[in-house]
Design a protein around this nucleic acid. Sequence first.
DNA 1: TGTATCGGTTCATATATTGAACCATTGGTT
DNA 2: AACCAATGGTTCAATATATGAACCGATACA
Lengths: 269, 269
Amino acid sequence: MSSAAKTLALLSHFTDLRPEIGLSQLCRLAGRDKATTYRHVQALEEAGFVEQNPATKRYRLGPAFLQLARTRERTVPRKAGVEAPLHMLAEATGETAHVAVLSGTTLYALHQLESVKHSTRVLIDVNTFPLHATASGLCALAFGPTELLDLASKTMPRFTPETITTPDALEGEIAVTRQRGFAQSSGGYEHDVHSMSAPIFDQTDLFAGTVSVACVATRVTPELARIIYEHLVLASRGITYNWGGSVPDIIEAAWAGSLTGTEALEPMT
Amino acid sequence: MSSAAKTLALLSHFTDLRPEIGLSQLCRLAGRDKATTYRHVQALEEAGFVEQNPATKRYRLGPAFLQLARTRERTVPRKAGVEAPLHMLAEATGETAHVAVLSGTTLYALHQLESVKHSTRVLIDVNTFPLHATASGLCALAFGPTELLDLASKTMPRFTPETITTPDALEGEIAVTRQRGFAQSSGGYEHDVHSMSAPIFDQTDLFAGTVSVACVATRVTPELARIIYEHLVLASRGITYNWGGSVPDIIEAAWAGSLTGTEALEPMT
DNA sequence: TGTATCGGTTCATATATTGAACCATTGGTT
DNA sequence: AACCAATGGTTCAATATATGAACCGATACA
């Protein structure tokens, strides 16, 4: 591990819950000698990445981040971070992968990618996703702001015989979704489409959108569903990271519960 | 210079105007060997501070900044209270308004806003402001901690023919700044830029940063200068209040003196 | 075809990093 | 008031780690 890497690793110990860290505490957290940690912190302070609170002598994140975060946002639009995970998702599942973003109370299609594996594939041809009738929508209802549910309950147009059209049924499905960490919709919007969806979070750590796989319904098997779930987890982690967020512990726990039996899944980078 | 410091210094080369940098170009900018630069960039990439654009192979700032900037702002709220006063300042003057914060002995760019009034406008494209060559820097020297002057006097690189490069001239300018309550710099850093700057104070009632207006030099008239001064006062009071501080009486008195007499408002000759 | 870039890799050299032991202060306990 | 256990910060010999010239393969260009 390079000296620079050790230095950078120090920054990861500063969080919302522990925004100020003294030298000794930082040593313990980093598991490194005090002199070493001190020099590393000096380098960080020099560059504006940490600053010392004059009152407490403890260190906190510095002002340089604001400027650099601004440049990052200007450089990389949100869509750019979605391309690679979606590609992997579509490849691994052989189905259509897509991402939607929540803006206000509407889920907008942001990007989609079709796998070339099969000659039949699902094409997403809507700009916005109905909340009650799609896996993405259920995901938003389960993990997004609560006002979405009030709005969705008001009008639930029927698209297919499978569409959920009663508030009770909707709430039941949302409960299952919360417990699982994924949403699922079989033919609720378009007849032959089976969809699975996981939430994405941004730098506010709030629900920001969904990543989904839309399958031709006749191809769905338990094995494929499992593969899709596993890769949805990876894609969600990857996109969430790229958008500057972190997956809430409660979601990770739900995923772990749904995927028991598989080895630990590494985040996508 | 430590290896970590060299690594961190690489990040300062990424700006809005140069958001993506290839390995070779980064070597030249950093003035360092390619292998060294490569390893440093690797360490940065590992930590999420840069990422490689797969298409161009060039590097750009990474997603880690979004999270860290958010934590910084939650720890030390600075940016939140700056938006509104800057907006008013930019609107009222028709020029570019910006805020810098002092951390240690360095002035970091915090936020900026360009007025849409004119088709030509000043773009702030630096992360840190040189103390001797900018209005913000002069402001820090005049109203900030005394050790800044020792530091600034040591190295005063010349950026333009107008740059102050002798300690005597610098001290003279600082004296004028103290007396006026504003700093002023005409083309000292970039040739066609005329800048005016007022200090900001935080909850310790010590100098915490600057609020400035950067004008296209050819547009500066005594009338515009007066408007800028008046609105700088308002912006400084507003931001100082928001940061939990209060403007020292001595500064208020200096402002009052500057804004009654007309001669003090004349631009630098 | 030859040349000049580019991103990335290797390896001997020597320079910069390391941590135990050491201060000087501070704040709480007896 | 003396004591103790923290804290932030410093020193120096030992050595682990960073360094850069030279190299590689790929690409672009003329």
